[in-house]
């Protein structure tokens, strides 16, 4: 009886693994067919931004004929899980590692481990904290990402212009300590300095999440009903804020500016419910990451930093295709 149960478990597990094994297998840094293997560890697999990035990376991998393993933690903020994933992939001796760090400083020990295993590291989207990296004597091959500071500035200028330099705005922050969100806010605040008539009445975190964007902005509306515009550090939070505005029956009265230019945000901009969104090109980022990882494997020199262009999507250009595609 006991044996029977064990056997059933064993069988069930084998079946699960076999059916899940697509893309796995192969020894060393090369897949069974001899193609080099590149690992791509993302913050999460369920955010449209990273889904775009994954698509771009996969398309590029196919083009170059390399094998790509994409992994992500269940939750975007789970730095410890991300570290475990990196450690585990190091065990499979991938040829190169691309990472979008869940934490700018927390990723450093993982970078150290990859360094020790001789695996080159490509950082995507979120910068590694320079000081922490230097202190730990870690090395990254390159950073590929948008200029988030510039993106925040674009958003700030757009809001200042729309409000004619006068009014009250709110900010929905990402998780504090995230380099991307922090840079966007710095850029945004910098742009508003040129318009002394604009006052930032609230700046609160919604932890990158849509439902929290809804709740937090609903609360802001309670305490500051006169808010005229909101800048959200990501589209998910912006879309949450949009719902909160609709729930308060104020659709169209408050300008919402997001970041990421996800499909849903673009549609909202086209419709006019959302003012603008800052377009990063996640797909292009993913593609560039794989491309540069490939160069690294081949021993070819690459740039230390690769900036992916950023632009503001407004009603005028919302229909045009994603530059990354």
């Amino acid at each position: 009886m006991k044996k029977g149960l064990m056997l059933t478990l064993l069988l069930a597990l084998s079946v699960t693994f076999m059916s899940c094994q697509r893309g796995g297998g192969g020894a060393g840094g090369t897949a069974s067919n001899g193609a080099p293997r590149i690992a791509f560890v993302m913050k999460t697999a369920n955010n449209p931004f990273f889904i775009e990035m994954q698509k771009g990376a996969e398309a590029e991998a196919k083009k170059l004929g390399v094998e790509l393993v994409v992994q992500a933690a269940e939750r975007e903020v789970d730095v410890e899980k991300q570290m475990q994933i990196v450690e585990n992939l190091i065990q499979t001796r991938v040829a190169a590692l691309c990472v979008t760090p869940s934490g700018s400083r927390e990723i450093v020990p993982a970078v150290n481990k990859a360094n020790a295993a001789g695996i080159p590291v490509v950082i995507v989207d979120t910068r590694v904290d320079a000081k922490a990296l230097a202190d730990a004597k870690g090395r990254v091959a390159t950073f590929i990402g948008s200029d988030n500071y510039e993106g925040g500035k674009l958003a700030g200028e757009f809001i200042a212009k729309s409000l004619n330099g006068k009014g009250k705005v709110a900010i929905l922050e990402g998780i504090p300590g995230h380099e991307t969100g922090d840079s966007r806010i710095r850029g945004f605040r910098e742009a508003l300095k040129a318009s002394p008539g604009i006052e930032i009445v609230a700046s609160q975190t919604a932890n990158w999440e849509r439902d929290q964007g809804f709740n937090v902005f609903q609360n802001i509306l309670q305490s500051h009903p006169e808010v005229q515009a909101v800048f959200a550090c990501s589209d998910l939070m912006a879309l949450g804020a949009l719902e909160a505005i609709a729930a308060a029956k104020k659709t169209g009265q408050i300008m919402v500016v997001g970041f990421d230019a996800s499909d849903e945000a673009r549609a909202a901009v086209t419709k006019g419910t959302m003012g603008a969104t800052v377009a990063q090109s996640p797909a292009q980022m993913g593609a560039l990451a794989v491309e540069n990882a490939y160069h690294l494997i081949k021993g070819e020199p690459i740039k230390e930093e690769i900036v992916v262009p950023i632009k503001l999507i407004t009603k005028e250009n919302a229909g045009s295709s994603n530059p990354g595609k």
Binding site: L13, G23, I85
Partner: peptide, 24 residues
């Protein structure tokens, strides 16, 4: 978790497998 990473299983399927193993 380690094995699922080594095998390159998608994070969505990982959650299903882990939950099932707990139950089994």
């Amino acid at each position: 978790r380690n094995g699922l990473n080594l095998l390159g299983v998608s994070s969505f399927i990982q959650q299903i497998v882990i939950g099932s193993v707990i139950i089994v």
